[in-house]
Design a binder for these strands. Structure first.
Lengths: 148, 148
DNA sequence: GCTTGACCTTGCCACGGTGGGAAGGAGTAA
DNA sequence: TTACTCCTTCCCACCGTGGCAAGGTCAAGC
């Protein structure tokens, strides 16, 4: 199986397959006489695993921890759960940050006259940093936010 | 005022001030005889504006749209509101994606024995893509997620 | 004066993931 | 043979931020 087929079967682009190989996330594929990468069903299975983990928001670094657990029959399910819950924590933190931003912006937008006059609480807030003089979650007042 | 003072006063790192200048987000600063960048209170004001907009999750590209509106006394508050609400939409979309991931992961983790046995619904799901054979939001089933 | 230390300058490199594209080889089908 | 698709490697881009290095400047203290 060439890289194109492995890509189609796994949903991981050829670009990314080569990238994962280069960075050591997956082992180097065997090569045909002509130098083409050759994949087995098992390799595709691994790629699918990676793809699904990415879809669930795991970083490549986290998947690096997940893969050996997946391959290790001696693993403790506890270890996996710890990784998963750590990831959930990270996701929740980001969600909380964004929720705070959304709340602030919505509040500002509500006070916006929304017409052709130049008075605008949104710009005013951005300029003066008062965050609408009310109701905005405290995390936002001190620049903690920034989701990155 | 040198770049260091402008940085301290605005909360934007010197690195980022130079970056914003290089990429054209802010105008090139005047220079002293020795070539040092020189800033005015007004420049600091602009940097604070940028900083607060970043804290609210606006991208640099979005701020590029916001700045002229801020500087333009003829602006219509409607235009600002549109930009802000577009941004809120984007934030909401990301939040929804992440909430879906969180829900899926939590559901999987709940079914985890959380001990030293190797059976693990989380890894099983990642390998087989059934997403816990229930309850997971449909968006997740087909790889739509992936937050970036 | 001279030294020291804090500050400034530019430049390059890195991150995480992903895509684009070029230049050239390999395979396959008509 | 030709034509087309696929493969290879290599470099470049995004975005926003930080780090480090080599060198210039400035102000304070001796």
């Amino acid at each position: 199986m060439n890289i194109g087929q492995a890509s189609a079967a796994s949903g991981v682009s050829t670009k990314m397959i080569r990238y994962y190989e280069r960075t050591g996330l997956i082992k180097s594929a065997d090569r045909s006489a002509a130098g083409y990468r050759v994949y087995t069903k098992s390799d595709v299975h691994t790629l699918q695993f990676i793809r699904r983990a990415r879809d669930l928001g795991f970083s490549v670094a986290q998947i690096e921890d997940l893969l050996p657990l997946w391959n290790n029959r001696e693993r403790a399910s506890h270890d996996v759960k710890v990784l998963a819950m750590e990831h959930v924590e990270q996701l929740c933190a980001k969600v909380a940050e964004m929720e705070a931003m959304i709340a602030t912006l919505k509040h500002l937008a509500e006070n916006c006259t929304d017409d052709d006059r130049p008075d605008c609480p949104i710009l005013k807030d951005l300029a003066e940093g008062r965050h609408g003089e009310c109701a905005s979650p405290p995390e936002n007042r001190f620049g903690v936010a920034r989701v990155g």
